[in-house]
């Protein structure tokens, strides 16, 4: 098991280098001179331009720029944004917000998705099942910004249960509504996944054997049907948590959440190379770790799967 984890972490190194190189190159290749853009309409003194270029190593060849950048990251220096703020500070401000938002969304996904999916699967073909499937289909087919605007208008503006936009602090309470919006599409998917999994498991021979032992229906459902059905669902949830952690541009934009997604979007618009690359690098790292944890979780849930031979 330990050997497996080490091997996976070693595998992460080429993935990390490859992705950062790719992103760095894409930002590098973006049209326009970032320094000139920084001055807007004002004319630029060529001497100042040269000085700034040298400061950001823009006068060096691409590969040297990349190596300088990677060297900085390894020393914990993510560079400086054009506004003069260290990118590390921006990361430290935005990630906690996104982690709160992702955690809340994940909670909704687990409670509503698994709960409704389980009942649906056990009452296959009945009224509850049919309605759950219909509602989940509606949510699956709506783009997230539509759901976001409808929820914002209905729950925040009409009913006044929540504030339509989030303040700079972005506390837990404020994030509930965006989290629900963020969770809806995954919930619809999880309902369907859980339902299919429950139906399949309920038909297994060991479930009949469990009944034949004299177990109550409640216990058979909890211990045998639900536990086995959750294996694919939990692994989906884990991957989804990784997706949520790297930010939700649309939802964060609509609810004005100062998280990773919105900040990254703004950085792209402004052509802030160092910020974009650093954010994406951190996202890649998070994604790699979450994926590894998902695989380990999978082995923990299903004793038949053992890594590391």
């Amino acid at each position: 098991m330990f050997g497996y984890i080490v091997r996976r972490l070693l595998q992460a190194i080429p993935v990390f280098l490859g992705t950062t190189l790719l992103i760095y190159y894409m930002v590098f290749a973006m049209p326009g001179d970032p320094i000139v853009a920084l001055f807007g309409d004002k004319a630029v003194n060529p001497a100042v331009l040269e000085q700034l270029r040298a400061r950001y190593h823009l006068d060096q060849p691409f590969i040297v720029q990349y190596l300088i950048y990677i060297g900085g990251i390894l020393r914990g220096d993510f560079g400086t944004s054009f506004s003069g703020q260290p990118v590390g500070t921006i990361l430290a401000q935005t990630f906690p917000v996104t982690i709160r938002l992702a955690t809340l969304a994940l909670l909704f996904e687990m409670i509503v998705g698994v709960g409704v999916g389980l009942i649906s699967g056990l009452r296959k073909g009945k009224f509850f099942d049919a309605s759950a499937l219909a509602v989940s289909l509606i949510f699956l087919s709506l783009p997230i910004f539509v759901i976001a605007f409808v929820f914002q208008f209905f729950f925040a503006i009409k009913l006044g249960w929540a504030k339509p936009t989030v303040s700079g602090e972005a506390g837990w309470g404020e994030l509930i509504l965006p989290a629900i919006v963020l969770a809806t599409i995954s919930i619809a998917y999880i309902i369907r996944l859980t339902r299919a999994s429950v139906i399949e498991t309920a038909d297994q021979d060991f479930v009949r054997t469990a009944y034949s032992k004299g177990l109550s229906r409640r216990r058979v459902i909890q211990v045998h049907i639900l536990r086995n059905s959750l294996i694919p669902v939990v692994t989906f949830l884990a991957v989804d948590f990784g997706v949520l952690l790297v930010g939700a541009t649309v939802t964060e934009g609509i609810f004005n959440v100062p998280g990773v997604g919105r900040t990254l979007y703004q950085a792209i618009i402004r052509g802030e190379g160092p910020t974009v690359v650093s954010f994406v690098t951190v996202m890649v790292l998070i994604y790699l770790v979450v994926n590894l944890l998902t695989d380990l979780l999978y082995a923990a849930l299903d004793p038949r799967i053992r890594y590391g031979k």
Binding site: F206, T209, H224, N228, I231, D302
Partner: peptide, 10 residues
Amino acid sequence: DPMANLNPVW
């Protein structure tokens, strides 16, 4: 079928 009648996760 002894293969299918024990729950694999317990």
